[in-house]
Amino acid sequence: MLPMVHPEVTISAETPPVAGEEEQLIAACIAAGGRPPAHVTWVVEQLDSKVKVQTNETQHSNGTTTVRNYLFVVPTRSINQQEVLCVVKHTTWKQEKVVPFRIQVHYLPTSVNISFLERLSEGPVFQCVADASPAEDTRYTWSRYHIYFVK
């Protein structure tokens, strides 16, 4: 009988999905090289979206198994930055391993707020704030129009 081997646990995430209406792969929790195979699940209680989970097992020639548990969800603004947990159980461990994963969803701004900050000698200073993800990739372009009224 082959000895038991504990798996290596990782989370693999694709490029963050863009908010939409199609179900997409968010992340995969991987328990690699365990003997016997690990039991892998997701805890997603805080998500307000319908979740689909798919499991895939790969048997290796050395008698170990890699278990991949894929998390699919419709990416929305409301699940951006929500935390889910990958839970892995294995007979070589006294307790389960819990690995947190923070979901990232990219989305366009839906609201833009422009506010007056102050007046300097060069003219007024305005601030533009837009709700978008990722925030650091949001670009602002300012334009100034002159309006002339003719009587």
Rank of each mutant, 00 (worst) to 15 (best):
K50T: 15
R35M: 01
V51H: 08
V51P: 12
E23D: 06
I26K: 04
Q24R: 13
E45V: 04
A27G: 06
T41Y: 01
T55M: 12
E57N: 05
G33R: 00
I26Q: 03
W42P: 07
L47K: 10
Q59V: 10
G34E: 08
Q24P: 01
A31D: 03
A27C: 10
E45C: 02
N62L: 09
A28S: 13
R35K: 14
H39R: 12
V51M: 08
A32E: 13
A38C: 06
N62V: 09
R35E: 02
Q24S: 09
P37N: 06
S61W: 09
V53Y: 01
P37G: 09
W42Q: 02
T41C: 11
G33P: 04
I26A: 03
E45Y: 08
V43F: 07
A38G: 07
G33D: 01
G33W: 10
G33A: 03
E45T: 15
I26S: 05
I30S: 04
S49I: 13
G34R: 07
A32S: 15
H39G: 04
V43P: 00
D48I: 09
V53C: 12
V44A: 14
L47V: 11
H39N: 13
A38R: 00
G33Y: 05
K52D: 09
W42A: 01
L25W: 13
K50P: 09
A31T: 08
K52C: 03
R35P: 00
H39V: 13
P36I: 08
N62W: 06
N56T: 14
H60P: 00
K52E: 14
R35Q: 09
T64R: 01
D48E: 12
A31C: 03
A31S: 07
V43K: 14
I26Y: 02
T55W: 02
A27H: 05
Q59F: 08
T64L: 00
G34V: 11
V44F: 15
P36C: 13
N62R: 14
V40Q: 05
V51L: 09
G63I: 07
P36D: 03
I30A: 05
E57V: 00
A31P: 02
Q54M: 14
A38S: 13
E57T: 00
T64W: 00
K52N: 14
E23H: 01
V53K: 11
Q54I: 11
L47H: 14
N62G: 07
E23K: 15
T41D: 10
T64D: 04
S61C: 10
E45I: 01
G34M: 12
P36N: 02
C29N: 03
V43H: 11
S49Q: 15
Q54T: 12
A28T: 15
E45L: 07
L25Y: 05
R35H: 08
P37Y: 02
H39K: 12
Q54W: 08
I30P: 07
Q54G: 09
L25G: 08
V43R: 14
Q46P: 11
A31I: 01
P37H: 07
T64G: 00
V51Q: 14
A32V: 00
H39T: 15
K52S: 15
L47W: 10
A27T: 07
K52H: 12
I30Y: 05
H39F: 10
W42C: 07
H39I: 14
T58W: 06
W42Y: 06
N62Q: 10
V40S: 07
Q59C: 04
N62A: 11
G63T: 06
A31V: 04
E45N: 11
P37V: 02
V51S: 10
A28N: 04
S61V: 09
T64F: 02
